[in-house]
Design a protein around this nucleic acid. Structure first.
Length: 288
DNA sequence: TATATCTCCTGCGGGC
DNA sequence: TGCCCGCAGGAGATAT
């Protein structure tokens, strides 16, 4: 599942392989892949054709291509299974190919998405807090790898909320880029149970948690950067290249790397949470 | 207004 | 062998 490190790997691939190229033609094969572009697939294709890809940018799990001369952004969200592939036109179409853009380089930029949670949409660029970004991304908070990320401000927001810490970590308007996997890993590193109320965690503990988020993402990014073929922009959400380094997520009944206690799996927000029952004790009183 | 829950989607694995 | 069901989860919509 693409979270911030995986999306950043894709952004770097796009930066290397499609920036500077002109979009010649666009074909949309599945309407759900452009559902966030309200004027529809025909409008999206028409407005993309002839545009030059000026840059590849990212905030959290959102990435976008800045287009010239229209000066709008093609916003891409990978959802759970989205891939942005640079392929020669002769390459066989992928089973879940949703959108194909042909570039003046003679290559295809393909959006492949099995579960169709992701998609493409055009958005106007706006300036928010000194940063230019698509208006559809304006509500997304800065991520921990953003040079202007302010951990003290995030700690303040967290302490003002009346919710559980894992819910808050997954809230992209508080801190962006964190999904279920890295939330569990960061909570394990900080030795905090995900059900702990945010307003009962001290500033230093929250600060420690944010540092854990940054460190786990930085390490994952370093590994992800070595796992892709240099000729392609290739994301495979199922490859699990960071699996070897996971301490908690998906490690049910495996020994905690810190204390040896078996990692437990619990249901949380209609999904799974993994934690060490010894290092990350549940709060005695769960808000309910 | 803030927070919690539901829904969308496809492929896989397990149980019967 | 084939069918059914649960699971995976990001984020917007809807409910509380």
């Amino acid at each position: 599942m693409p979270e911030l490190p995986e999306v950043e790997v894709v952004r770097r691939g796009l930066d290397a392989h499609v920036v500077g190229r002109v979009i010649e033609t666009v074909d949309v094969f599945h309407p759900r892949a452009v559902r966030r572009h309200l004027p529809g697939a025909i409008d999206l294709a028409r407005r993309l054709e002839g545009q030059t890809i000026a840059s590849a940018e990212r905030r959290g799990k959102y990435l976008w291509l800045v287009l010239e001369p229209s000066d709008v952004a093609l916003v891409v969200h990978l959802g759970m299974s989205g891939q942005m592939l640079v392929q020669p036109p002769s390459a066989e179409s992928e089973k879940h190919l949703r959108i194909r853009a042909r570039l003046d380089s003679g290559m295809d930029l393909r959006f492949v998405d099995q579960r169709t949670f992701g998609g493409w949409a055009l958005a106007e660029l706006v300036t928010v807090d000194g940063t230019v970004l698509p208006d559809s991304v304006a509500h997304i908070a800065r991520d921990p790898l953003d040079a202007r990320f302010d951990p003290d401000a995030v700690v303040k927001v967290l302490r003002s909320k009346k919710t559980e810490i894992k819910r808050a970590l997954l809230d992209q308007t508080v801190v962006s880029g964190v999904g279920n996997i890295y939330a569990d890993e960061a909570l394990w590193r900080a030795e905090i149970h995900g059900n702990r109320p945010t307003d009962r965690l001290t500033g230093p503990r929250l600060r420690c948690l944010l540092e854990s988020v940054e460190s786990v993402m930085t390490e994952a990014l370093a590994q992800g950067g070595t796992s892709f073929d240099a000729l392609y922009v290739n994301v495979n959400g199922q490859s699990g290249y960071f699996d070897r380094s996971l301490a908690a997520y998906g490690q049910e009944n495996m020994p905690c790397p810190r204390c040896g206690a078996p990692i437990q799996r619990e249901k949380f927000m209609n999904r799974s949470s993994y934690s060490c029952p010894n290092c990350q004790p549940r709060p005695r009183v769960v808000r309910g």
